[in-house]
């Protein structure tokens, strides 16, 4: 397989802004007093949307916001597959590989994307733009093959669609989905 290229992000750049902290505090308010820890997944998503991944520094800041021990944040972040615990490319393509998608060609599609971007699964392109990952069932089984990227679904994929999708992302035309 091709060699893995990691984007280097320094810890210092994951300092939360006042605005981000305000959003996190708001998420806490959705839950009764004393149960604010319930907002942890929402808050982890917010941090990841901001920096692209979750550094230890990010998780430590979250522990402070939730007033819990850092380990309580680490143990949650490591359980859920949506969280990237290492730096990733600007655009992470998570391609569904589970049964129903496989029946309509996800294996071949994953191979095609890897070939097109010249990376293997789990790797990032040299320019730091794209990371290719596989995902288990994304809940779009009737619309496969499909991938998710920055809270957006791209469905009914073909090699041609992948080509144009990559170009659109390169030109920065696709904005992140809701969060």
């Amino acid at each position: 397989m091709k060699e893995s290229k990691k984007v280097v992000t320094t810890e210092g750049t994951t300092q939360f802004s006042a605005e981000l902290i305000a959003k996190m505090e708001e998420a806490k308010n959705c839950f009764p007093e004393g149960k604010e820890k319930s907002a942890i997944l929402k808050i982890l998503h917010l941090a990841q949307a901001e920096f692209g991944w979750l550094s230890v520094h990010s998780m430590d800041q979250i522990a402070e916001i939730l007033r819990v021990e850092p380990i309580e944040v680490y143990e949650v972040a490591t359980f859920y597959t949506m969280f990237h615990l290492e730096p990733v490319g600007k655009y992470v393509f998570e391609v569904c590989r589970t049964g129903p998608c496989m029946l309509v060609g996800s294996d071949q599609l994953i191979e095609y994307i890897g070939h097109k971007l010249n990376i293997g699964i789990g790797e990032t392109t040299k320019d730091g733009l794209f990371t290719l990952k596989t995902a288990e069932c994304l809940g779009g089984c009737g619309y496969g093959p499909l991938l998710q990227c920055r809270h957006r679904f791209h469905e009914h994929l073909t090699p041609e669609k992948i080509d144009s999708l990559i170009e659109q992302y390169q030109r920065g035309e696709i904005k992140p989905g809701a969060l």
Binding site: C30, F31, K35, K37, S38, A39, I40, L41, K42, L44, H45, L66, E75, V76, F79, Y80, T81, M82, F83, A135, E136, C137
Partner: peptide, 26 residues
């Protein structure tokens, strides 16, 4: 109130879901 999970099939199992909703591992 609506709140998101983090990508874990097991959180569809009702007690895992409740753990997750409490902000823990599923």
């Amino acid at each position: 109130v609506i709140t998101p999970g983090g990508g874990a099939y097991i959180c569809g199992e009702e007690t895992a879901l409740l753990e997750s909703l409490e902000g823990k591992r599923g």
